[in-house]
């Protein structure tokens, strides 16, 4: 049984806990739809479709990490949050996870709520909190944007991996003999390394988009630098 992606397979977490997280995910995604509607317009909608498709593609590209015999791939939460914002971004990653579970047999259908919670919700939320903080303090330069992308992507992967640890604590199907911290440490260590890859891919992609079409980077539009003077409205202008 070959599995390709970093998604929870059936049987790893028990049914009741998976059910609870399915409800949590559904509620959170409903909220994302309501908030995301405000962001979505004729320009953002096709861009969001592209972001989902791009994340699907890059999730197929498992890269080796330094530890022998272990691979990782992009999760995409930080990339989506930077390009299309946190609400639509979480929906983008969710669409990817749903297509993977329902069509490609990747990540149990019964485990979908758990996977969405970790990768689409936790990953994107952690990333956007960092993005919002970093973009306000770092200089508005290509380097500042790249550093923001790298750091937020790296941290978001580790946070998502710890989401799984919490879920395993609640409903893991194997008794770890009280050694949950062992699992937490292993997951954090491996995902720190995967996070470096995630950071490099995210920074490269966002830097490229920002160079070609800076107006298509949501985070640059929505987040104003803290130190920069407020834009002066034209005197006697449109309002």
């Amino acid at each position: 049984m070959e599995t390709l992606a970093m998604h929870i397979s059936n049987g790893i977490i028990n049914g009741p806990v998976a059910g609870v997280f399915a409800a949590v995910a559904l509620a959170a995604l409903t909220f994302c739809v309501l908030r995301g509607r405000r962001d979505l317009d004729d320009r953002l909608a096709p861009m969001a479709g592209l972001v989902a498709a791009f994340i699907f593609a890059v999730q197929m590209l498992n890269f080796p990490i330094f530890t022998a015999g272990v691979s990782g791939h992009l999760l995409g939460g930080a990339l989506a949050a930077l390009l299309v914002g946190p609400w639509v971004g979480a929906l983008c990653v969710s669409v990817v996870l749903i297509v993977q579970a329902l069509v490609f047999g990747d990540g149990g259908v019964a485990m979908l709520g758990l996977n969405i919670t970790n990768m689409a919700l936790l990953g994107t939320a952690a990333a956007y909190l960092l993005i919002a903080g970093l973009l306000r303090v770092l200089p508005r330069t290509p380097t500042g944007l790249a550093v923001t992308a790298f750091v937020s992507a790296l941290v978001s992967v580790v946070v998502a991996s710890q989401g799984f640890v919490v879920q395993y604590w609640l409903g893991g199907t194997t008794d770890l003999g009280g050694n949950l911290t062992g699992l937490a440490g292993t997951m954090a260590g491996v995902h720190l390394l995967i996070g470096i890859g995630e950071g490099l891919i995210t920074a490269t992609t966002v830097a490229t988009v920002a160079k070609v079409r800076p107006d298509l980077v949501y985070a640059l539009r929505a987040l104003k630098p803290a130190t920069a003077p407020a834009p002066v409205p034209a005197v006697g202008g449109a309002r």
Partner: peptide, 12 residues
């Protein structure tokens, strides 16, 4: 792409 088990699978 690398065919090694990924971060989650290897941890499990």
């Amino acid at each position: 792409a690398s065919s090694h088990p990924d971060g989650l699978d290897s941890s499990l």
